[in-house]
Write a protein that binds this DNA or RNA. Structure first.
Lengths: 342, 342
DNA sequence: CAATGTGATGGTAGCGCTACCATCGCTCCT
DNA sequence: AGGAGCGATGGTAGCGCTACCATCACATTG
């Protein structure tokens, strides 16, 4: 008489269809799908057969509404094109591939305001977990994270005051170690060149500064930065600026590998010997740094591993098994290469 | 008496709360939010005030369930780390930022099976649109796309038989133009080196082959490929292999810029003069190609624009304004640079 | 002035699923 | 033997929202 299926477009099978076909109650189908161990072997088999026959797939929206919890991981990164975050994402995706969790990815463009906006959007969806890059959320964002009612993992760096959990490493230490290495290799007038200068870059700069000051080599004129987004092109330009400003420059610690590559290319173009006349150190250790000529010293960062670990921690928290230590420092590794082998 | 809010965790305000506070029916609130022009000025104002005061945010899951349509764009790309797709994504995200659409991103790892799986997962969600990379879907995937009941945009390349809409360019032509350019510049023993060799790479190779054959220069031994994922490191290795196989090689058309960069670095390392002894052409024209020393000739591809356009087309289709021509060819541009300036 | 729109608003009935509680048959204990 | 305890199953009542249809005031028409 009534046509209850008429509104729904596809007329896809629902849990009621499966239940009817399997000769059980709808709730039993639901259980068989979500907690199989609570349903008897026999019914489970019947239900599975009905599911297969009908090609039933549960509606995630209805699930989310009924259970007040969506099987979604919300992920917030500041950039999609920065290969560093791309690798973190890869780790996250790989870790979640076998699960039934979907991923909703937001791009904050390094903006606190956009981050707030995206968290507002994620909130009503009741995600299963939230993974956000960085530790410098605005007060509003922080409150949104704290009241999200789900596990939250801040990734990329470690810090003192986690919203919930953290996975990363110390960018300050990274900058410090890189700089100390150059000092050790005999460089004295070591410049810092950096673009974007997001909070993590700032901390690398602070590490550089600490190392330079400790060695009595610090000179503010050695620092060349810009808020402009990083690129190889920009690296070249910044390097030229730095050299023009301080002609006695004998090394550069670059905020990231793109910048380092730009500096390296400029050295080639200007026939500046690397590592003899100028030493170069990058940050992140992208694949190409090892292949470059000369190969470029860099700080290897555990990007993929950060992605994997963040998911592992979130999943554990969802399962009620919170880690002892909420802050995980995955460290980094100095890769000594030709570009600083004076 | 009853505690109807007890199940729901946060006790967030619902549309009923807003309706009560504004002194109107729930449905009117719903309309005020979705089709403001259908609600009188006065009520609209009252409702807005109530929304602001309560901090009401609609539950997207309930919306999706009730309206049989989720405000979600499903996006499927084969790789997260390949910067080509990262830029397509950036275009998609930028185009959707002001809208209320969320984005759910799937990574197919260049696998037809994983693509099918992801489409299965996206389906029950009833996304507003689907954007998928490539035109070589498996029959199952194709069927899933055709029955998705929403606009579908295939991106990255153009082809003869769109599921629905397409935005991209001809990889065959790209390979052909690149190769013809090298022939024109006087190169004769031009190798093709490529990794991954996904369908788009195959078509670039076919373009290369067509150009070489037309010039009477084709020789199968000039082709060096591997199914291994592309990287700068791999580019270097493949280039060495190619040179070992054909010592008379005087140029290489590289499947992509990473490979080209690897080849360039190897030339530096082996003191092979570029472009004099060997010419190099890349594909995609990443930022660094212009900065490299020597700068590297490449095919500039409209990646960001593909992302933007795909969203524009999907949005138009959602609004019922399907484009005249479902297949949009955005073309490409040959960037002549030092690496082929013999 | 009755008949007929027309636009604004509201009520009802779900969307497909799961939380909660009830029921039922069985085992196991005293 | 009787009842507590337990595991398996099902019914009911929503989750928060929107599609559909009804209603109502007011304008328009001949």
């Amino acid at each position: 008489m009534t046509k209850p299926r008429s509104r729904r477009g596809g007329g896809r099978p629902t849990i009621a269809d499966v239940a009817r076909k399997a000769g059980v109650g709808a709730i039993t189908v639901s259980r068989a799908l979500r907690e199989p161990e609570r349903v008897s072997e026999v019914l489970r088999r019947q239900i599975q057969a009905a599911v297969d026959e009908l090609g039933y797939l549960p509606d995630p929206n209805a699930r989310a509404l009924a259970s007040a919890r969506a099987e979604v991981f919300g992920v917030l990164v500041p950039s999609l094109t920065n290969s560093v975050f791309a690798e973190v994402l890869r780790g996250i995706y790989d870790s979640l591939f076998d699960s039934s969790y979907r991923i909703q990815l937001g791009n904050t463009h390094y903006s606190g305001l956009e981050e707030e906006r995206l968290l507002q959007v994620f909130g009503p969806q009741r995600p299963a977990a939230l993974i956000v890059a960085g530790v410098d959320q605005t007060p509003t964002s922080r409150r949104l994270l704290e009241t999200a009612g789900c596990p939250v993992v801040q990734v990329m760096e470690t810090g003192p005051d986690p919203v919930d959990m953290m996975v990363g490493f110390s960018h300050f230490d990274g900058g410090k170690v890189a700089t100390e290495h150059m000092i050790e290799m005999g460089y004295r007038r070591i410049g810092f060149i950096g673009a974007r200068m997001d909070p993590r870059s700032q901390r690398r700069l602070a590490g550089y500064r600490a190392a330079m000051e400790a060695a009595g080599l610090f000179d503010a004129r050695l620092i060349t930065t810009t808020p402009v987004p990083s690129s190889v092109t920009l690296g070249r330009e910044l390097f030229r600026d730095a050299l023009a400003k301080v002609p006695t420059l004998d090394g550069v610690f670059c905020n990231n590998d793109d910048i380092a590559l730009g500096a390296l290319f400029e050295c080639h173009r200007a026939s500046i010997a690397v590592p003899k006349t100028i030493g170069i150190t990058g940050f992140n250790d992208l694949d190409m740094m090892e292949v470059a000529f000369p190969s470029v010293t860099s700080i290897r960062t555990p990007r993929y591993e950060i992605g994997r670990r963040s998911v592992a921690m979130a999943l554990a928290a969802i399962a009620g098994k919170r880690p002892q230590e909420p802050v995980v420092d995955l460290g980094f590794e100095l890769k000594r290469r030709e570009s600083t082998a004076r």
